[in-house]
Design a protein around this nucleic acid. Sequence first.
DNA 1: TATGTATTGTTGGTGACACCAATGTTGGCT
DNA 2: AGCCAACATTGGTGTCACCAACAATACATA
Lengths: 153, 153
Amino acid sequence: MMSVDAQPPARVRNAASWLINMVSAHSHRLVGDGFAAAGARGYHYRLLAALDEYGPSSQATLGRHTGIDRSDVVAALNELAEKKLVERAPDPSDRRRNIITLTPDGARHLAKLDDVLAGIQDDLLEPLDPSERAQLTALLTKLADHHAKRSRL
Amino acid sequence: MMSVDAQPPARVRNAASWLINMVSAHSHRLVGDGFAAAGARGYHYRLLAALDEYGPSSQATLGRHTGIDRSDVVAALNELAEKKLVERAPDPSDRRRNIITLTPDGARHLAKLDDVLAGIQDDLLEPLDPSERAQLTALLTKLADHHAKRSRL
DNA sequence: TATGTATTGTTGGTGACACCAATGTTGGCT
DNA sequence: AGCCAACATTGGTGTCACCAACAATACATA
């Protein structure tokens, strides 16, 4: 039994799909653990980073920049505001909006999370030499750009 | 201060970490949608694939092969068994164990999911030419292998 | 033989991420 | 005015991942 059968068993993984999911899962775990150790989670980082990059924004704008649903933005900002990492103020020029501002504490926290992420990146890419890392980054950028364009339709 | 501040705004994404997460999220969404359309989810595919690759197994073994927690294996197998894609039988030689077997229907379903996955892969890798796809696969394989080895400690 | 340890299946609970529907308020347009 | 779009918020759903506890069974060894 199993004479020649031992050949097609590993067909299971459709290469890229499976690989991306494996690496993704690993990266996801590393990031989750790292952020948890820093008392944060992915949504927090994304929001803080968007605030740092684009400056004070409304919650809806933050949602668009981070790809986080409006409702989830509310919850995450509640948590960030409670820790004084972010400030919520009504927009005088449009009373529907809240203007969210990064506090100095928030900026410091973001810097810490950046460090965490850098460490994770090293861990994740450990088996790759610099040239390979550049290759991977280039390929992933291509995919990410393509996906971003498509999702903007 | 901060005059030259306009430079480091896009520093936000620590390249690979961020990119992998973006691509991973996109892939995750595609896979989730694709599986949902086929009336399945990730756990189902993983379990069916493991059964196909390793043959009839106990639930604990399935969990180890797929990286799914024992408790989640139970739930997913309940769903698969209800759809007759899998059979649960007590192991006579060890009354703690259940032996899970892939049914012909299950094998057919797995084949369908493999097709779904292949389609997703094409969609995901659309912007890459064959040589680039090979590169990406090679790099991801390196990462996945490295991770697999590490998690086996 | 008895006792302790490990494994197995199972139940139940938690958290993160992603998404959707409904609501009330406000802005803008015609 | 009236209508429609955008905003913040609440609450709910589903998937993935993980953990703790339990009873039953197997195994080792004292």
